[in-house]
Design a protein around this nucleic acid. Structure first.
Length: 271
DNA sequence: AACAGACCCTGAGGGC
DNA sequence: TGCCCTCAGGGTCTGT
């Protein structure tokens, strides 16, 4: 399930593979992936070249000659760059045929991902909060947000309008390193907690990008290569295993409707 | 306004 | 072996 580091890895990979390529046709095999009119989407992109590859939160932003489109991979979306004559996989839904004879193919088992055509200058995704790796995500921003909320801290970390790009996996990792219980009420966190949260968010995401994203379940890079990424998780999916700090067994619970892993000794609720 | 829950979708895994 | 049921989850929409 791609989160910010995985999306960033896909962005960088595609930038390397298809910069400057021209789209000569678009085959839409499953229309609901396209938000808006699929015919318009196709027509607008034919003849356009890939000029810039950007990312905002978990969204990919492709800037072409005079249009743009955004893409969200949701749970299992993947891009592959393949030769045109390679067989089309069962879950390939969109094919961008390129002038070089290659295809950019979008594959998505659960069909949750979405693409949307945008005007060239309209790449903003208004619902998103700050980028976690930018200076805008800092102590005072977080403190201001958290001190006005009675929500559970994990629900807030997953809320893209607070900070954009954190999903279920990294939320667990960030809270574990910060020694904060996922069910902790946001406004109860003290300055040290918030400082830890901000720093660990930046550190966890930065390291994950360096490793090229986390491999879990069906995620692979846009190269379609599995197994080249290290798995570097401390608590997520580690139910029953020893906490790396105190050896207590990691437990699995449910917070904000999501499977949640934590160390019951290191991460305690405040009284 | 702020938050909770349903929904989308398929494959994996458990139970029998 | 194979069928049925449950679960996984990000964002969006609907309901309270």
């Amino acid at each position: 399930m791609p989160e910010l580091p995985e999306v960033e890895t896909v962005r960088a990979t595609l930038e390397n593979l298809i910069s400057g390529e021209e789209i000569i046709d678009v085959k839409i095999l499953y229309e609901p992936i396209i938000k808006g009119d699929p015919v318009k989407f196709k027509k607008a992109l034919i003849g356009q070249h890939f000029r810039q590859f950007k990312r905002r939160g978990k969204y990919l932003i492709f800037k072409m000659d005079n249009v743009a489109f955004i893409s969200h991979l949701r749970m299992e979306g993947k891009y592959f760059v393949q030769q045109r004559n390679e067989p089309i996989l069962k879950h390939t839904h969109i094919i961008f045929e390129l002038a070089s004879g290659k295809d950019l193919r979008y594959d998505d088992t659960r069909k949750f991902g979405r693409m949307e055509l945008r005007d060239f200058d309209d790449e903003e995704i208004t619902s998103l909060g700050v980028e976690p790796l930018s200076d805008a995500f800092n102590m005072s921003y977080a403190k201001d947000f958290l001190h006005h909320s009675n929500r559970h801290i994990k629900a807030l970390l997953l809320d893209q309008s607070f900070v954009a790009g954190i999903g279920n996996i990294y939320a667990d990792e960030i809270l574990f390193l910060s020694k904060i219980h996922p069910d902790e009420v946001a406004c109860k966190l003290n300055d040290q907690n918030i400082k830890d949260l901000v720093l660990n968010t930046k550190e966890v995401l930065t390291k994950a990008i360096e490793l090229g994203g986390t491999t879990i379940r069906s995620y692979t890079s846009s190269l379609g290569v599995t197994g080249r990424f290290q798995i570097n998780l401390r608590v997520h999916t580690k139910q029953g295993e020893a906490c790396p700090f105190c050896q207590t067994k990691i437990i699995k619970t449910r917070v904000a409707g999501r499977g949640t892993y934590l160390c019951p000794n290191c991460q305690r609720l405040k009284k």
